[in-house]
């Protein structure tokens, strides 16, 4: 037998906003469903280490999918005649359509970066559907600090500039092997996709006005942010936590914006206690 990893990848087609979307999903483990949302401009490969960690997969069914336009998921038919721009509604609809199609019951949902933002929306609006939300690098508000047009124009290689920009978001302590693997997925992103995702993360998805409405008794909220994250900074994480009564916030020292992929060994020391607590709460 080949020495396979426990991860299994498959495809399914889901309907989102009236359009058929062919989605790539991978998963490993048994137990409580744990849906994982990748960062802007990347894909579900970021979660491969969690899926190969028996301390997690003995208790959780870890499921990560590539958003439409990302990774091995297709863009919708007719993509060439539109500009990709992720709105809050489209993002939420995609996630809920995926969870319905997968027939998931009361999953935990964990997202990073833009995924960490959207799970806060879900904690408020879909509190009954989720057992808990885990926002990695997920502040409820960010401020733009460069023009997004740099990410998609013909005189600049989109993959290389996206990776070069987010390389600032990897902590200097993170192992080179995983730093460059994390950046590789940015180099492989489709044209304009990181830019289109940041429309949600920087503009459309602000949530600081409604995050105080989250009831963490109904849906517990965990915020974990890296010390070296320069967008979802420790300060913005603390500000977010201060607006969500009962939210549990942790700053992960020596980690940047991509905890699960840039330093998996260090990240597991932060995420395992959270997953144990959620499991213990029943």
């Amino acid at each position: 037998m080949p020495d396979y990893e426990p991860i299994v990848g498959r495809y399914l087609t889901i309907e989102v906003a009236g359009e058929a979307c062919r989605i790539h999903v991978e998963e490993a483990g048994d137990g409580i469903p744990l849906v994982c949302l990748h960062t802007a401009g990347s894909d579900a490969r970021q979660y491969r280490h969690l899926m190969c960690d028996p301390a997690i997969t003995d208790h959780y069914r870890v499921i990560a999918f590539d958003m439409p336009w990302h990774g091995k998921s297709n863009p919708p038919v007719g993509w060439r005649d539109r500009e990709y721009s992720l709105t809050t509604e489209l993002y939420k609809d995609t996630i809920m359509a995926f969870c319905r199609a997968m027939e998931l019951r009361h999953p935990v949902i964990m997202g990073c970066s833009m995924g960490g933002r959207v799970v806060l929306h879900l904690a408020l609006e879909q509190a009954d559907r989720f057992r808990a939300v885990i926002a990695l690098e997920g502040a409820d508000r960010l401020e733009p600090y460069y023009e997004l047009d740099w990410l998609h124009r013909p005189d600049i290689h989109g993959g290389e500039v996206c990776a070069a920009i987010v390389s600032a978001q990897v902590a200097p302590q993170s192992p080179d092997e995983y730093r460059w693997e994390t950046l590789w997925s940015y180099m492989q992103g489709g044209p304009g996709i990181f830019k289109g995702d940041l429309y949600f993360y920087w503009y459309d998805g602000h949530f600081d006005d409604r995050s105080p409405l989250i009831d963490t008794d109904k849906c517990p909220v965990y915020l974990l942010s890296g010390e070296y994250d320069s967008s979802c900074t420790p300060e913005r994480t603390a500000a977010t936590a201060s607006r969500i009564a009962g939210a549990k916030a942790t700053v992960m020292e020596g980690i940047g914006h991509f905890p699960m992929s840039e330093n998996p060994a260090l990240f597991r020391t932060y995420i395992l206690p959270v997953l144990d607590e959620i499991r213990g709460a029943g």
């Binding site: 460069y146 920009i165 390389s167 600032a168 200097p172 070296y228 320069s230 967008s231």
Partner: peptide, 10 residues
């Protein structure tokens, strides 16, 4: 905030 010019920019 000091480890990379783009972090310095932010």
């Amino acid at each position: 905030n000091h480890h990379d010019i783009w972090a310095m920019l932010a």
